[in-house]
Amino acid sequence: MVTKIFLGISLFVISIQLVAGDDDGRLSKVVRQVPAMYVFGDSTLDVGNNNYLPGNDVPRANMPPYGVDFRGSKPTGRFSNGYNIADSIARTLGLKESPPAYLSLAPRSSIRLVLAALSEGVSYASAGSGILDSTNAGNNIPLSKQVSHLASTKRKMEATVGARAVRRLLSGSFFLLGTGSNDVSVFAATQPAAGDVAAFYASLVSNYSAAITDLYEMGARKFAVINVGLVGCVPMARALSPTGSCIGGLNDLASGFDAALGRLLASLAAGLPGLSYSLADYHGLSTETFANPQASGYVSVDSACCGSGRLGAESDCLPNSTLCGDHDRFVFWDRGHPSQRAGQLSAEAFYDGPAQFTAPVSFRQLADMDASY
């Protein structure tokens, strides 16, 4: 009973305001827009889940120079020189950074998992994962399993504070999803030129719909969804072109799925009472950034800051890799992932930037919405 009362009071206080330390160690009062954030997706959002997965074929970012611009210059599992886009979105909402990785909390400590889930949320994102279970290499955590991990977390939370309190928490929380890039890349690499694209889209939509519906049935109401960006323009893809140009076919495949994703979310919102969403157009934002990189202070939109060889894309980012001089002036940190600053600028655009980058509302407006359960 004491534990339930303590957690209930803590949850109420945290939902109003958070007293947290700034990066320079000073204490400041941060107004939090949502009680918690729950994260699902791939390497662009992963904050360390893959560090705990077995096997040598699991993509990890647990070695330097990853994290060189993070606190203490330490690698954390983020595929970034510092924070990733999940962190930057969390900060716009009043959290200090992304909620912790699920596998850093469980199954080692159910108490730690419950406390994190109630007070700030949990990240289930896993590098290399996709919407389809078949996309995943090795022991990565596909979207369906990420959702099932939340279901397990939810049961532990309910045992501590009760089902009604947990449902109220989830209904007001921010559910961030960003996945599909790996599905698109794997399909393009493994299917013949005349592959059944329509069937591929249908599979993605069906699986995404099931995941969102399952989250909704658990109590989720606010969905912030990031679409698939210009996967044909990452350094790894550009290096396949003799001229270093984007792979148009990859971008077209991503664009087709993005259109289907927009229709799916509109349909779900019409059929599931109380569901609200904001669809972030990462594809469109990247297109605008690449067309005028100087406007955002970039000197490179085609090369990796950390890597080797042509466009820095002929190897992964490794301890002996060559680094660019100014990490903030490169869109890409490694051959497939954005830099910390690119993630920050994307988060700001989705939170309260130009209206064309989010629909039908911005992330800020979504966070401010009342939620029913």
Rank of each mutant, 00 (worst) to 15 (best):
M1L: 14
K4D: 00
I5W: 05
L7I: 00
G8W: 05
S10Q: 12
F12H: 03
I14M: 12
S15V: 01
V19R: 15
G21I: 06
D24P: 08
D24H: 12
D24I: 09
V30L: 08
V30G: 00
Q33C: 01
M37T: 09
F40H: 12
G41M: 10
N50M: 15
Y52N: 14
R60K: 15
A61I: 01
A61G: 00
P65K: 10
Y66S: 03
K74S: 12
P75A: 10
S80Q: 09
N81G: 02
S88R: 13
I89F: 04
I89Y: 06
R91T: 08
P100H: 07
P100A: 14
L103N: 10
S104A: 11
L113N: 07
V114N: 05
S119M: 15
S119A: 09
G121A: 04
S123V: 11
A127G: 15
G130V: 12
S134W: 00
T135V: 11
N136L: 14
N139G: 08
P142R: 10
L143P: 08
S152F: 12
K156Y: 07
E158R: 13
R167Y: 06
R167Q: 13
S171Y: 08
T179W: 08
G180D: 10
G180R: 12
N182D: 09
F187N: 05
Q191D: 00
Q191L: 03
A194W: 10
D196P: 14
D196W: 13
V197D: 04
A199T: 11
F200P: 04
A202E: 11
S203H: 08
L215C: 10
Y216I: 03
E217N: 13
V225D: 00
I226N: 06
V228R: 02
G229E: 06
L230T: 05
M236C: 05
L240G: 07
L240H: 04
S241F: 00
P242H: 05
G248N: 13
G249A: 12
L261H: 09
L264W: 03
L265A: 02
L265M: 11
A280G: 09
S286W: 05
P293Y: 01
A313N: 06
E314C: 07
N320S: 02
D326A: 10
H327D: 00
R329E: 05
F330L: 11
W333E: 03
D334H: 07
G336R: 11
P338E: 01
R341D: 04
S346Q: 07
A355Y: 01
A359H: 04
P360N: 03
A367P: 00
